[in-house]
Design a protein around this nucleic acid. Structure first.
Lengths: 225, 225
DNA sequence: CAGGCACCAATTGTATACAATAAGTGTTTG
DNA sequence: CAAACACTTATTGTATACAATTGGTGCCTG
């Protein structure tokens, strides 16, 4: 029984998916009319969806000249991952105090599902489960303001997260990190959580940068001159 | 040499000011047409400005029924202040490593200006300088992602910050806190910064809640029955 | 009198037309 | 040839008209 979504919402969801999934690569230029024609709607809902995405920093609005899919520099990507990790630590530490048995069970289920997704090679699902794992803990911190910040930072990293599955050993390694974090949460061991989270993030961070470099050089070699 | 602002930008700035300054109290209901008529523009830029404010959580959008100026519960206000403080600590600790002499000088000037504003009783300026003091340090942390988060949280607290000047002793006390923080930054003493920041925030926090309670009961007694 | 049904008004949601602006392009002129 | 100027075009910015949905109000009916 989901209520009808507005066109703005549909356009937003659709564009957002295309951006974070990498279907619209960083640097791509789009215009209001282009999207409106593609989705067979008027400019109004498109325009509003684009403004929302711009505010979330997923795209860049250039007055009178269109929009660009955000393409962060290596430094900005690292900054993003580091900031996310530092703020997540706060959430994780709080979660220890409030997390329920149900939520712990959800974490456990998530780990099992991830294992299955790795076995069957469902890359997209692996990423989704990764994001959900973290989100469960954001929620458990019982702070609206903190949840909002964490979710936003998580969203911003999502598009870079997808590429990580290309490195074949990585999903398994990251699952191990999640298991460590889960156990540290179970044990209510703050230091261990921080330690595992820092490891987890640094690991992702270094691979993201190299994967992005690879993707960038690949796309260069495909260009026509 | 500021370039012309779009109507959307003007509407946004104007509404935003009215909200954070308390001119539009929490709980007030507004509609697109009401604002459009008041500012003599069409609904389009108004609508876009309202959506931006809604995304910043300064107002609440209720489909087909208008917009409400956000009115946080005491718990949500406390949560907001706590979260802001916890994340600010990260920024303050980073700032130690990167802050320049110029920026330290800016902090010093800010303290002097605040002292003057307190003496002359310019409440609005006191609040502005308070916000700027913190913003200088956000910037000095040299992290785009962290800056964005801190600024957003600071914005959300602004409307509650204004009421604090009503408590006559408070501006002076908060200036003392800023001086302590300034000295701790000068000394590059992480622990002292955290300590001063926690004190600063808890202090503001407890007064905000009592001031909001007072304001709420005042406005009740003015209502007609 | 109570409950529901139909209508009406208010409000946001969407489409479209038009305005303004900025960038690019070609041409003209020194 | 280079620089500047005007012209065209692509794009966002704004206004307005219309659609859809919601909430309320009053009437009708049992």
């Amino acid at each position: 029984m989901k209520k009808k979504a507005s066109l703005r919402q549909k356009v937003y969801t659709s564009l957002r998916f295309d951006i974070v999934s990498g279907k619209l690569p960083g640097g791509t230029r789009i215009t209001e009319n282009f999207i409106a024609d593609a989705l067979k709607v008027s400019r109004t809902p498109v325009r509003e969806a684009l403004q929302k995405l711009a505010q979330e920093k997923l795209i860049l609005s250039i007055p009178k000249a269109g929009y660009l899919i955000e393409d962060l520099s290596d430094n900005d990507i690292q900054d993003l991952f580091t900031t996310r990790m530092e703020i997540e630590q706060i959430a994780f530490h709080k979660a220890i105090d409030y997390i329920t048995l149900d939520e712990l069970k959800n974490l456990d289920n998530n780990l099992e599902a991830t294992k299955a997704a790795i076995k069957s090679g469902e890359d997209f699902k692996i990423t989704e489960l990764d994001i959900e794992f973290h989100a469960i803990i954001y929620r458990a911190a019982r702070s609206k303001a903190l949840f909002r910040v964490c979710k936003n930072l998580s969203d911003l990293t999502t598009k870079y997260r997808h590429g990580l599955n290309l490195v074949k050993s990585l999903p398994t390694e990251m699952l191990q990190h999640h298991i460590q974090i889960y156990q540290a949460v179970l044990a209510k061991d703050t230091d261990k959580i921080s330690q595992a989270l820092v490891l987890h993030t640094r690991h992702a961070q270094s691979h993201v940068v190299s994967v992005m470099r690879k993707l960038r050089s690949d796309s260069f070699s495909h260009e026509d001159f």
